[in-house]
Design a protein around this nucleic acid. Structure first.
Length: 590
RNA sequence: GGGGCCGUAGUUCAGCUGGUUAGAACGCCGGCCUGUCACGCCGGAGGUCGCGAGUUCGAGUCUCGUCGGCCCCGCCA
């Protein structure tokens, strides 16, 4: 660079700067060599500006420019001039001006890049993330991170305005029995012992409440060693919030205000508040899921009673086994082909359904493999309950509660898309309330917490804790947007006795309760205020705000589906001496 | 742990029921060109068809295995 100092960024020069002497630095987007005149598009994060080299004015600079290649890093000094009317480029913000170069320095030449650094062709994800630095030079690569940054800075401003305090909690912490698989970190000072990376700062933030921190938040990395998905990474970021002396209403109002501001400042969209609210039971009943996409209707219909004494064996058999029958009317879907119906059957099959019953309703008849088993009374009931009309299809599923709901919920999403019912541009927020406190895990033969073990039961359900735990509802809530779970939280248990009772209901061994949660129980016994909070998936929110198809797009250096860092190739083997120091020997031979 | 899709030039892709020397566009290299902005024109180079077996007279194409990427189920309090 020598002693040169950059005067502004490439996207910034405008007509106000014309006549000025500018020094610009950036990357070579393209070179257009006309033999005589030569143009260079100089780019940085802020944008692009055209540099002109004229061999008659500056033969030396022009000569150097002839050897400039894509992605070379340049510094150019010259005069900013107006372009003549015919040569103005309306497609870029700096298109009215250009830099007449007097002197050019190649700060660092670049090898030919492994993929073109522009938004024209999308490189494969493998090369995008292997060469993430090239990807980030493209607007398409950088934009999701810019939106993420704006979102987080808006959130910090907002919470700061509301007197929240950001506190950092430990990353080297303690493994706890419930929840996802932990990432472990061996301890050198304590051979054979391990820290765990936090799955969330849950217990620390509750302890902060006991410490009187009152209004806490943290934008914090969390770790879960589970298999990846399009919207799941092994390390992800939570917006963690906790407040003392609050009711759910206080949390809702705070979150709605925050979301309003985020959508206003990041997307320029004005959200209506208060958000919709659904009980868990209503959400499950009408949509078959606890995270319904409310951008379209297509509600499910309960049909168990209709078919209680039916001749349709698949229905009565499922009901006899304690299952349910539910249906979904797809308006105007009567033209579905056999192949399409097979595909839909395969779709519900993914969630365990053994088949998918369908009826095509036309003016003259009901076409279905089931027709001959359906009584007139059942047809009347179906007409009443679904409002079916000629040209529609009724889908029905009979199986246990989870399979029916999950199958139909996903069928509903698919049909919503196929029938073009999803209203684009609509932000359909909803709170989902009154989740069950616990659910029975057949595989494990015990109850597990639906939210987490520190969630308070509803007060009116306390008597059921002993007699019928499955019917106890919790003071938990989720925030759902367009079918995506953005965050969830709850009012916490602040009584040590109740906390012990819930832990024992979850069949946590009484010895390990004190081992694992002793510090929490002790804190609850030393003046813990009633408190509650919520945590959001920052990455998912950023995905939504940036219209990104995958979580990888909103993370600077994401991991592949097999949890490998595509840039550094971590995890890797370590030196045996490091292992010896930790007193660790691996079983995996390699 | 299970199911599915994909892997061909530097990049994005085409390559049919197996059949001559594996193609296109962009990029790259060389030449020409003084108002282009996805500059244009002429010429050229560039391939372990992910890898390994198998079937076959013959495999980019079929089969099996393997590696990698992506999507899904399980898992993710």
């Amino acid at each position: 660079m020598g002693d040169w100092q950059r005067s502004c960024r490439c996207g910034e020069p405008g007509e106000g700067d014309v006549g000025g002497e500018l020094t610009l630095m950036g990357w070579t987007q393209s070179v257009r060599d006309h033999g005589g005149l030569l143009f260079i598009d100089l780019r940085d994060r802020s944008g692009m500006v055209q540099v002109v080299l004229n061999p008659e004015v500056t033969p030396e600079a022009h000569d150097k420019a002839k050897r400039v290649r894509s992605e070379d890093v340049l510094a150019v000094r010259g005069t900013l001039v107006h372009r003549s009317d015919e040569t103005v480029n309306p497609n870029i913000p700096t298109g009215a001006v250009e830099l007449m170069a007097r002197e050019l320095r190649v700060l660092n030449p670049s090898r030919v890049p492994p993929f073109p650094v522009d938004d024209e062709v999308e490189p494969t994800e493998t090369s995008r993330f292997r060469y993430r630095y090239l990807d980030l030079r493209r607007p398409r690569g950088l934009r999701p991170l810019e939106i993420r940054h704006r979102m987080l800075s808006t959130i910090r401003n907002h919470l700061n305005d509301l007197s929240f305090m950001e506190v950092e909690t430990p990353v080297l912490t303690k493994s706890t029995p419930e929840g996802a698989r932990d990432y472990l970190v061996p301890s050198r000072m304590h051979p054979g012992k391990f820290y765990a990376l936090p799955q969330s700062p849950q217990l620390f933030k509750q302890i902060l409440m006991v410490g009187g921190v009152d209004r806490y938040f943290q934008i914090v990395r969390c770790f879960r060693d589970e298999d990846l998905r399009m919207d799941r990474q092994p390390e992800f970021t939570q917006l963690d919030i906790e407040m003392s002396f609050v009711q759910p209403e206080d949390i809702f109002a705070m979150v709605e205000g925050m979301m309003q501001r985020v959508f206003r400042e990041v997307r320029g969209v004005e959200l209506e508040t208060p958000f919709c609210r659904l009980s868990w039971e209503e959400a499950m009943g009408r949509y078959g899921t606890d995270k319904p996409d409310l951008r379209f209707g297509l509600e499910l219909v309960e049909l168990s009673d209709t078919f209680r004494d039916s001749k349709v064996a698949i229905f009565t058999r499922a009901l006899a086994a304690g299952g349910i029958v539910k249906g979904l009317r797809a308006p105007g879907a009567g033209d579905l082909s056999r192949k399409e119906l097979d595909d839909l059957t395969e779709l519900v099959g993914r969630y365990g359904a053994k088949g998918l019953a369908w009826i095509k309703v036309t003016d003259s008849d009901w076409q279905s493999p089931l027709t001959k088993f359906l009584s007139e009374a059942e047809k009347d009931a179906l007409r009443d309950l679904t409002g079916v009309q000629s040209g529609d299809v009724i889908f029905m599923l009979a199986d246990d509660f989870d399979i029916v709901n999950e199958g139909l919920a996903n069928l509903r999403l698919e049909m919503g898309r196929r029938l073009g019912l999803v209203q684009e541009g609509v932000q359909a927020f909803t709170w989902v309330l009154d989740f069950p406190l616990v659910e029975w895990r057949k595989a494990e033969g015990r109850f597990t917490a639906v939210h987490h073990p520190f969630t308070a039961p509803r007060e009116e359900d306390l008597p059921l804790l002993e007699s019928d735990p499955a019917r106890v509802k919790s003071r938990a809530y989720d925030l759902v947007l367009n079918g995506m779970e953005l965050g969830g939280g709850s009012i916490r248990i602040h009584s040590p006795e109740l906390q012990r009772q819930v832990l024992s209901l979850l069949d946590v061994n009484p010895d390990t309760v004190d081992d694992q949660f002793g510090f929490l129980l002790e804190a609850l016994d030393l003046g813990a205020p009633p408190h509650g909070g919520i945590a959001f998936g920052v990455d998912r929110l950023a995905m939504l705000l940036s219209d990104s198809p995958a979580i990888r797009d909103v993370i600077a250096f994401p991991k592949s589906q097999r949890a490998v860092c595509m840039l550094t190739e971590a995890p890797t083997a370590v030196d045996v001496r490091q292992l010896a120091e930790l007193q660790i020997r691996t079983l995996a031979g390699d």
